[in-house]
Design a protein around this nucleic acid. Structure first.
Lengths: 234, 234
DNA sequence: GGACGCCTCCAACTTTCGAGGGATCGACGA
DNA sequence: TCGTCGATCCCTCGAAAGTTGGAGGCGTCC
């Protein structure tokens, strides 16, 4: 929350690395960006490996990342620079720019930690604007793909309303439900919680009774539907 | 895919309805938009009820929707105009514009079917641009909130990689897994699939064996984690 | 024609669940 | 102080869930 020192600051240049396997494309980006007073191109990479290494060595603020690249693709490289496994202090923002408007790329890039996603046919001003937004701690998704992103989001987003029911559970019962949702048996939950299996059974029964369910499977489903646990559960 | 007749077309005006409970705000939007040659304000509403009714009666292309409103809030109104329960032909695009940058509003609006989400402190040009984008079948989310949208998306998006395992299942086995993920018992699945319970047990055992799992609960978890089923499961 | 995978079913068996009783203890509020 | 609630444990018992080892039919591929 405090890292972004307002990118457009006078005197503070946005250090950009361009990663694309085609020299022509890199050149295009370069001429486009070099005319901007607040943007500085600190390097070019022609594959994902180079992109990750150079971004770190040159201390880039933002990496302009293509998806299709040899050796390591843009999504993997994004994961290495901005993914959930990277310590927050070491993260480098990534703006993914690709020719291909594929869900696989869009959702993949965003899951990988990209802060922005643009199509290469976007207006040059949009690219620059997106770069500034990303460097400023904001995000930007091409309007062309935003609709699909929203649709997908609506599809997979849990309903917080359904989570209201979970409020009637005691703390311990919620803990047990959390364990249930990992697929553990009563015996395993007991071991993990350092209590007897009989106790776990009591809790499970209480959970089912309070939520009006008939089996642990239904409890797990509710845990997912309500957002108590998420597929990417970290 | 074919509806969007390129909003900025000469001769084709974007019919906009403004929904906000504060007259001053409506007035602000009005003067801002009336100077645009391709935008036509077809009405104003001061609550959600009015917004929905007027949008339909005036055949609006886009509704500029505030969130906090009396009688029916903007999220509910959005659901009524663009929600998943509305037949595609009757849907009216909604651009949610609010003062408050709350996750509840952002995610709520997008889940409700909004095509765009802006904060009221956005630049006027951005608002106009967003309006055109939405009318053109595109989407737009304020860069200020896009980061959080992406982060949330990454958190809840299933990993398609984990779905690869499901490919080794037979069609019938996948059908059984789908039923499992609704919380049905073996007996209920049997009834629903018009087979004997013993058959269902065979299939369930096969599913568990193929996926290397030990209980139906784990199978259901995999179904969610892989995206075979989603919380918003329609 | 045989091998193979899938779907359907069966029976017998073990293990796990989950419900239905209790019980004790401590905390907290009326 | 009493009542309530949560957490912990106990036991019983019936009902699910899963395993194992079949079997027959059906289609495909070689």
């Amino acid at each position: 929350m405090s890292t972004a020192t307002s990118a457009g600051d006078a005197g503070h240049m946005i250090r950009v690395l361009i990663a694309d396997d085609q020299a022509i494309v890199r050149g295009g980006f370069r001429v486009l960006l070099e005319s901007e007073p607040d943007i500085e191109i600190v390097g070019e990479a022609e594959d994902g490996m180079q992109a990750v290494a150079l971004a770190r060595r040159r201390d880039a603020d933002v990496v302009l990342m293509d998806v299709r690249m040899p050796r390591m693709d843009g999504l993997e490289a994004t994961r290495a620079l901005a993914g959930p496994d990277v310590p927050p202090a070491e993260r480098i923002d990534v703006l993914v720019v690709t020719t291909f408007d594929l869900d696989e790329y869009v959702f993949g890039a965003l899951r990988a930690g990209a802060a922005g996603f643009l199509l290469k046919d976007a207006q040059p001003e949009v690219l620059v604007e997106a770069l500034r937004a990303v460097a400023g701690g904001k995000g930007l998704v091409d309007p062309e793909v935003t609709r699909r992103l929203i649709a997908r989001f609506a599809e997979i987003a849990p309903d917080p309303e359904r989570g209201r029911a979970l409020e009637m559970l005691s703390e311990r019962e919620r803990a047990v439900l959390l364990q249930l949702a990992t697929g553990r048996s009563n015996a395993e939950i007991a071991a993990s919680l350092h209590v007897e299996e009989s106790t776990v059974k009591s809790h499970v029964s209480a959970v089912l009774a309070k939520l009006g369910l008939r089996s642990r499977v239904q409890a797990v489903i509710l845990a997912y539907e309500s957002g108590l646990v998420t597929p990417g559960g970290r």
